[in-house]
Amino acid sequence: MLFFTIVSFYLCVLIFINLYRAIYGPDILTRIAAINAIGTKTVMILILIGFIYGRVEMFIDIAIVYALLSFIATIVAAKYFLTRRSIE
């Protein structure tokens, strides 16, 4: 159980490093890529929380829904720049 806690803390640290790119990223497409990477790590953290509290069968549903939502959000953001044809 302690192992899962340490792993999820480590993933949180990685998320904060990604957040640096998401905030200070030189261009906007880097920010979208960083947000997508944060979404993937959040899915993992949700499953780890399920293990820590012993309710995996509930948190796995939340994780699946979060994966779908973050995928759609990234696609919409990228699609916006496909039609806008400029990143300024």
């Binding site: 497409l29 979208i32 890529a33 997508n36 993937t40 899915v43 995996v56 069968e57 796995i60 549903d61 994780a63 699946i64 994966a67 779908l68 995928f71 990234t74 696609i75 990228a78 699609k79 720049f81 496909l82 806008r84 044809r85 400029s86 990143i87």
Partner: peptide, 30 residues
């Protein structure tokens, strides 16, 4: 429950290249 676990990588193996490709194509278009 293991089958439910499989759903996540199964979905991600289709979604992640799609996202990468779509961001990359946005970069080429811009």
């Amino acid at each position: 429950l293991s089958l439910k676990f499989i759903l996540i990588p199964l979905f991600l193996f289709m979604a992640s290249p799609t996202v990468t490709h779509s961001i990359g194509r946005a970069g080429v278009t811009c």
